[in-house]
Protein backbone atom coordinates (compact mmCIF):
# COMPACT_ATOMS: atom_id res chain seq x y z
CA UNK A 1 0.00 0.00 0.00
CA UNK A 2 1.31 3.39 -0.87
CA UNK A 3 -0.81 5.82 1.08
CA UNK A 4 2.19 7.70 2.43
CA UNK A 5 1.64 10.46 -0.11
CA UNK A 6 -1.69 11.23 1.49
CA UNK A 7 -0.19 11.39 4.97
CA UNK A 8 2.35 13.93 3.82
CA UNK A 9 -0.32 16.20 2.35
CA UNK A 10 -1.37 19.04 4.61
CA UNK A 11 -4.98 18.92 5.71
CA UNK A 12 -6.48 21.94 4.02
CA UNK A 13 -9.94 21.44 5.44
CA UNK A 14 -10.68 20.14 8.91
CA UNK A 15 -13.01 17.15 8.79
CA UNK A 16 -16.63 17.69 9.61
CA UNK A 17 -18.93 15.10 11.14
CA UNK A 18 -20.21 14.39 7.64
CA UNK A 19 -16.72 13.40 6.48
CA UNK A 20 -16.49 10.79 9.22
CA UNK A 21 -19.96 9.59 8.29
CA UNK A 22 -18.84 9.28 4.66
CA UNK A 23 -16.04 6.95 5.85
CA UNK A 24 -18.77 4.50 6.88
CA UNK A 25 -19.92 4.09 3.25
CA UNK A 26 -23.54 5.01 4.00
CA UNK A 27 -24.89 3.61 0.71
CA UNK A 28 -23.40 0.19 1.39
CA UNK A 29 -24.68 0.49 4.95
CA UNK A 30 -28.24 0.92 3.64
CA UNK A 31 -28.02 -2.43 1.87
CA UNK A 32 -26.51 -4.05 4.97
CA UNK A 33 -29.27 -2.69 7.22
CA UNK A 34 -32.02 -3.69 4.80
CA UNK A 35 -30.82 -7.27 4.28
CA UNK A 36 -30.05 -7.72 7.99
CA UNK A 37 -33.57 -6.50 8.88
CA UNK A 38 -35.07 -8.96 6.37
CA UNK A 39 -32.97 -11.78 7.87
CA UNK A 40 -34.13 -10.81 11.36
CA UNK A 41 -37.82 -10.54 10.45
CA UNK A 42 -37.84 -13.68 8.29
CA UNK A 43 -36.60 -15.72 11.25
CA UNK A 44 -39.27 -17.73 13.09
CA UNK A 45 -38.45 -16.10 16.44
CA UNK A 46 -39.83 -12.80 17.69
CA UNK A 47 -37.32 -10.30 19.03
CA UNK A 48 -38.08 -7.40 21.37
CA UNK A 49 -38.15 -4.22 19.24
CA UNK A 50 -35.50 -2.47 21.37
CA UNK A 51 -33.14 -5.43 21.06
CA UNK A 52 -33.85 -5.67 17.32
CA UNK A 53 -33.22 -1.96 16.66
CA UNK A 54 -30.08 -1.89 18.81
CA UNK A 55 -28.67 -5.06 17.24
CA UNK A 56 -29.30 -3.86 13.68
CA UNK A 57 -27.65 -0.56 14.62
CA UNK A 58 -24.55 -2.39 15.82
CA UNK A 59 -24.47 -4.47 12.63
CA UNK A 60 -24.68 -1.20 10.65
CA UNK A 61 -21.85 0.32 12.70
CA UNK A 62 -19.73 -2.81 12.18
CA UNK A 63 -20.35 -2.66 8.43
CA UNK A 64 -19.49 1.05 8.44
CA UNK A 65 -16.31 0.35 10.40
CA UNK A 66 -15.20 -2.16 7.78
CA UNK A 67 -15.91 0.52 5.14
CA UNK A 68 -13.64 2.97 7.00
CA UNK A 69 -10.87 0.35 7.22
CA UNK A 70 -11.31 -0.38 3.51
CA UNK A 71 -10.93 3.34 2.73
CA UNK A 72 -7.81 3.51 4.92
CA UNK A 73 -6.23 0.58 3.08
CA UNK A 74 -7.35 1.61 -0.41
CA UNK A 75 -6.59 5.34 -0.11
CA UNK A 76 -3.98 5.11 -2.86
CA UNK A 77 -6.26 3.56 -5.48
CA UNK A 78 -9.29 5.60 -4.37
CA UNK A 79 -7.33 8.72 -5.32
CA UNK A 80 -6.78 7.39 -8.84
CA UNK A 81 -10.33 6.29 -9.60
CA UNK A 82 -12.80 9.00 -10.62
CA UNK A 83 -15.68 7.26 -8.80
CA UNK A 84 -13.82 7.28 -5.46
CA UNK A 85 -11.54 10.32 -5.73
CA UNK A 86 -13.85 12.49 -3.62
CA UNK A 87 -13.84 10.13 -0.64
CA UNK A 88 -12.66 11.79 2.60
CA UNK A 89 -9.06 10.47 2.53
CA UNK A 90 -8.12 11.26 -1.11
CA UNK A 91 -9.98 14.58 -0.72
CA UNK A 92 -7.57 15.41 2.14
CA UNK A 93 -10.28 15.84 4.76
CA UNK A 94 -9.42 12.82 6.92
CA UNK A 95 -5.93 11.34 7.30
CA UNK A 96 -5.42 7.59 6.73
CA UNK A 97 -4.42 7.17 10.38
CA UNK A 98 -7.62 8.81 11.57
CA UNK A 99 -9.66 6.49 9.35
CA UNK A 100 -7.73 3.48 10.66
CA UNK A 101 -8.28 4.34 14.33
CA UNK A 102 -11.92 5.24 13.65
CA UNK A 103 -12.47 1.92 11.85
CA UNK A 104 -10.77 -0.26 14.46
CA UNK A 105 -12.53 1.49 17.36
CA UNK A 106 -15.97 1.14 15.79
CA UNK A 107 -15.27 -2.49 14.82
CA UNK A 108 -14.43 -3.45 18.41
CA UNK A 109 -17.31 -1.47 19.84
CA UNK A 110 -19.91 -2.87 17.41
CA UNK A 111 -18.87 -6.52 17.95
CA UNK A 112 -18.87 -6.19 21.76
CA UNK A 113 -22.20 -4.39 21.80
CA UNK A 114 -23.81 -6.96 19.47
CA UNK A 115 -22.63 -9.73 21.82
CA UNK A 116 -24.36 -7.92 24.69
CA UNK A 117 -27.55 -6.95 22.87
CA UNK A 118 -28.09 -10.19 20.90
CA UNK A 119 -25.80 -13.19 21.32
CA UNK A 120 -22.21 -14.37 20.93
CA UNK A 121 -22.82 -16.19 17.65
CA UNK A 122 -24.17 -13.04 15.97
CA UNK A 123 -21.20 -11.05 17.31
CA UNK A 124 -18.76 -13.69 16.07
CA UNK A 125 -20.37 -13.55 12.63
CA UNK A 126 -20.10 -9.76 12.57
CA UNK A 127 -16.43 -9.96 13.58
CA UNK A 128 -15.80 -12.52 10.84
CA UNK A 129 -17.59 -10.33 8.28
CA UNK A 130 -15.40 -7.33 9.17
CA UNK A 131 -12.28 -9.54 9.02
CA UNK A 132 -13.37 -11.00 5.68
CA UNK A 133 -14.06 -7.63 4.08
CA UNK A 134 -10.97 -5.87 5.39
CA UNK A 135 -8.32 -8.60 5.41
CA UNK A 136 -9.46 -11.26 2.92
CA UNK A 137 -11.02 -8.90 0.37
CA UNK A 138 -9.40 -5.44 0.71
CA UNK A 139 -5.88 -6.40 1.78
CA UNK A 140 -5.46 -9.72 0.03
CA UNK A 141 -7.73 -10.55 -2.90
CA UNK A 142 -8.72 -7.19 -4.36
CA UNK A 143 -5.28 -6.51 -5.83
CA UNK A 144 -4.33 -10.13 -6.40
CA UNK A 145 -6.97 -11.91 -8.41
CA UNK A 146 -9.77 -11.13 -10.86
CA UNK A 147 -11.94 -13.37 -8.70
CA UNK A 148 -11.79 -10.57 -6.07
CA UNK A 149 -15.42 -9.68 -6.61
CA UNK A 150 -16.62 -13.28 -6.42
CA UNK A 151 -14.97 -14.12 -3.10
CA UNK A 152 -15.24 -10.60 -1.69
CA UNK A 153 -18.96 -10.71 -2.37
CA UNK A 154 -19.30 -13.07 0.58
CA UNK A 155 -18.64 -10.17 2.95
CA UNK A 156 -21.71 -8.37 1.64
CA UNK A 157 -23.74 -11.56 1.86
CA UNK A 158 -23.38 -12.10 5.62
CA UNK A 159 -25.81 -9.42 6.98
CA UNK A 160 -29.05 -11.44 6.48
CA UNK A 161 -27.36 -14.40 8.22
CA UNK A 162 -26.40 -12.11 11.11
CA UNK A 163 -29.98 -10.77 11.22
CA UNK A 164 -31.35 -14.33 11.40
CA UNK A 165 -28.87 -15.31 14.14
CA UNK A 166 -29.74 -12.18 16.16
CA UNK A 167 -33.31 -13.55 16.32
CA UNK A 168 -32.69 -17.27 16.68
CA UNK A 169 -29.21 -17.59 18.16
CA UNK A 170 -28.59 -20.51 15.80
CA UNK A 171 -28.05 -21.41 12.14
CA UNK A 172 -30.36 -23.09 9.65
CA UNK A 173 -30.68 -23.41 5.87
CA UNK A 174 -32.84 -20.33 5.20
CA UNK A 175 -30.33 -17.57 6.05
CA UNK A 176 -27.78 -19.32 3.87
CA UNK A 177 -30.22 -19.13 0.94
CA UNK A 178 -30.28 -15.35 1.45
CA UNK A 179 -26.49 -15.42 1.72
CA UNK A 180 -26.26 -17.36 -1.56
CA UNK A 181 -28.62 -14.92 -3.28
CA UNK A 182 -26.34 -11.94 -2.52
CA UNK A 183 -23.18 -13.98 -3.13
CA UNK A 184 -24.28 -15.08 -6.61
CA UNK A 185 -25.71 -11.65 -7.45
CA UNK A 186 -22.51 -9.73 -6.67
CA UNK A 187 -20.32 -10.84 -9.64
CA UNK A 188 -22.76 -9.99 -12.48
CA UNK A 189 -23.64 -6.74 -10.68
CA UNK A 190 -20.01 -5.57 -10.42
CA UNK A 191 -18.88 -6.93 -13.77
CA UNK A 192 -21.69 -5.01 -15.51
CA UNK A 193 -20.36 -1.90 -13.73
CA UNK A 194 -16.77 -2.73 -14.71
CA UNK A 195 -17.75 -2.98 -18.38
CA UNK A 196 -18.84 0.65 -18.57
CA UNK A 197 -16.49 2.12 -15.90
CA UNK A 198 -13.51 0.60 -17.67
CA UNK A 199 -10.91 3.33 -17.38
CA UNK A 200 -11.36 3.59 -13.60
CA UNK A 201 -10.26 0.04 -12.81
CA UNK A 202 -7.60 0.07 -15.55
CA UNK A 203 -6.04 3.27 -14.16
CA UNK A 204 -6.01 1.95 -10.59
CA UNK A 205 -4.44 -1.36 -11.63
CA UNK A 206 -7.15 -3.37 -9.87
CA UNK A 207 -7.22 -6.80 -11.56
CA UNK A 208 -10.83 -6.70 -12.59
CA UNK A 209 -11.90 -9.46 -14.93
CA UNK A 210 -12.23 -6.86 -17.71
CA UNK A 211 -8.51 -6.04 -17.31
CA UNK A 212 -7.07 -9.54 -16.85
CA UNK A 213 -9.28 -11.71 -19.07
CA UNK A 214 -10.71 -9.16 -21.45
CA UNK A 215 -14.16 -7.82 -22.00
CA UNK A 216 -15.46 -10.76 -24.06
CA UNK A 217 -14.62 -13.15 -21.24
CA UNK A 218 -16.32 -10.80 -18.74
CA UNK A 219 -19.50 -10.91 -20.81
CA UNK A 220 -19.38 -14.73 -20.73
CA UNK A 221 -18.80 -14.69 -16.96
CA UNK A 222 -21.84 -12.45 -16.40
CA UNK A 223 -24.10 -14.93 -18.20
CA UNK A 224 -22.41 -17.93 -16.54
CA UNK A 225 -23.07 -16.53 -13.04
CA UNK A 226 -26.57 -15.34 -13.89
CA UNK A 227 -27.85 -18.83 -14.82
CA UNK A 228 -27.23 -20.45 -11.39
CA UNK A 229 -28.41 -17.20 -9.75
CA UNK A 230 -31.75 -17.51 -11.55
CA UNK A 231 -32.14 -21.16 -10.46
CA UNK A 232 -31.31 -20.25 -6.86
CA UNK A 233 -33.52 -17.15 -6.76
CA UNK A 234 -36.58 -18.89 -8.21
CA UNK A 235 -35.95 -22.07 -6.18
CA UNK A 236 -36.00 -20.05 -2.95
CA UNK A 237 -39.72 -19.45 -3.58
CA UNK A 238 -40.39 -23.08 -2.56
CA UNK A 239 -38.62 -22.84 0.80
CA UNK A 240 -40.00 -21.56 4.09
CA UNK A 241 -38.84 -17.97 3.40
CA UNK A 242 -40.51 -17.94 -0.03
CA UNK A 243 -44.15 -17.94 -1.08
CA UNK A 244 -46.46 -16.84 -3.92
CA UNK A 245 -45.56 -13.13 -3.68
CA UNK A 246 -41.88 -13.96 -3.76
CA UNK A 247 -42.41 -16.41 -6.64
CA UNK A 248 -44.12 -13.79 -8.84
CA UNK A 249 -41.44 -11.19 -8.06
CA UNK A 250 -38.65 -13.72 -8.68
CA UNK A 251 -40.11 -14.95 -11.98
CA UNK A 252 -40.42 -11.42 -13.40
CA UNK A 253 -37.05 -10.16 -12.16
CA UNK A 254 -35.13 -13.27 -13.16
CA UNK A 255 -36.63 -13.31 -16.64
CA UNK A 256 -35.53 -9.68 -17.08
CA UNK A 257 -32.09 -10.28 -15.56
CA UNK A 258 -31.47 -13.39 -17.65
CA UNK A 259 -32.49 -11.50 -20.78
CA UNK A 260 -30.12 -8.66 -19.82
CA UNK A 261 -27.22 -11.05 -19.17
CA UNK A 262 -27.92 -12.80 -22.50
CA UNK A 263 -27.92 -9.43 -24.31
CA UNK A 264 -24.60 -8.49 -22.67
CA UNK A 265 -23.09 -11.83 -23.72
CA UNK A 266 -24.32 -11.43 -27.31
CA UNK A 267 -22.86 -7.94 -27.79
CA UNK A 268 -19.32 -7.03 -28.66
CA UNK A 269 -17.35 -3.93 -27.72
CA UNK A 270 -18.07 -2.11 -30.97
CA UNK A 271 -21.81 -2.40 -30.42
CA UNK A 272 -21.46 -1.39 -26.76
CA UNK A 273 -19.39 1.68 -27.56
CA UNK A 274 -21.77 2.68 -30.34
CA UNK A 275 -24.66 3.10 -27.89
CA UNK A 276 -22.52 4.13 -24.88
CA UNK A 277 -22.97 0.81 -23.02
CA UNK A 278 -26.73 1.18 -22.91
CA UNK A 279 -27.45 -2.50 -22.21
CA UNK A 280 -24.67 -2.82 -19.60
CA UNK A 281 -25.90 0.29 -17.78
CA UNK A 282 -29.51 -0.89 -17.82
CA UNK A 283 -28.51 -4.35 -16.47
CA UNK A 284 -26.52 -2.64 -13.70
CA UNK A 285 -29.55 -0.52 -12.76
CA UNK A 286 -31.79 -3.59 -12.92
CA UNK A 287 -29.38 -5.49 -10.66
CA UNK A 288 -29.92 -2.90 -7.92
CA UNK A 289 -33.70 -3.36 -8.13
CA UNK A 290 -33.21 -7.12 -8.44
CA UNK A 291 -31.67 -7.50 -5.00
CA UNK A 292 -33.88 -4.91 -3.32
CA UNK A 293 -37.11 -6.47 -4.63
CA UNK A 294 -36.10 -10.07 -3.86
CA UNK A 295 -35.41 -9.16 -0.24
CA UNK A 296 -38.52 -6.97 -0.21
CA UNK A 297 -40.54 -10.02 -1.29
CA UNK A 298 -38.96 -12.17 1.46
CA UNK A 299 -39.95 -9.43 3.91
CA UNK A 300 -43.54 -9.37 2.60
CA UNK A 301 -43.76 -13.15 2.96
CA UNK A 302 -42.45 -12.90 6.53
CA UNK A 303 -45.00 -10.25 7.46
CA UNK A 304 -47.99 -11.91 5.79
CA UNK A 305 -50.08 -14.41 7.76
CA UNK A 306 -48.65 -17.91 7.42
CA UNK A 307 -51.52 -19.52 5.49
CA UNK A 308 -50.33 -20.10 1.96
CA UNK A 309 -51.35 -23.65 1.07
CA UNK A 310 -48.31 -25.52 -0.22
CA UNK A 311 -46.01 -22.86 1.16
CA UNK A 312 -47.44 -23.01 4.69
Amino acid sequence: MTDISYQSQPQEVEASLGDYFALLKPRVMQLVVFTAVVGLLAAPVQVHPVIAVASILFVAIGAGASGALNMWWDADIDGVMRRTSKRPIPAGKVTPDEAKVFGFALSGMSVMMLALSANLLAAALLAFTIFFYVVIYSMWLKRLTPQNIVIGGAAGAFPPVIGWVIATGSMSLEPWLMFALIFMWTPPHFWALALFMKSDYDDAGVPMLTVTHGRKSTRKHILAYTIPLVVLAVGTAFTSIGGPVYLVVALVLNALFLKGAYDIWRRDEAQAEADDYKVEKSVFRLSLWYLFLHFGAILVEALLPAAWGIWA
Binding site: H48, V50, I51, A54, L57, L116, S117
Partner: peptide, 13 residues
Protein backbone atom coordinates in the same frame (compact mmCIF):
# COMPACT_ATOMS: atom_id res chain seq x y z
CA UNK B 1 -30.23 6.20 26.15
CA UNK B 2 -29.91 3.09 23.96
CA UNK B 3 -27.86 1.25 26.62
CA UNK B 4 -30.39 2.28 29.25
CA UNK B 5 -33.28 0.95 27.12
CA UNK B 6 -31.39 -2.28 26.38
CA UNK B 7 -30.62 -2.82 30.06
CA UNK B 8 -34.25 -2.24 30.99
CA UNK B 9 -35.50 -4.70 28.35
CA UNK B 10 -32.91 -7.35 29.29
CA UNK B 11 -33.68 -7.13 33.01
CA UNK B 12 -37.46 -7.12 32.65
CA UNK B 13 -37.39 -9.80 29.93
Amino acid sequence: VLILALTFVKITG
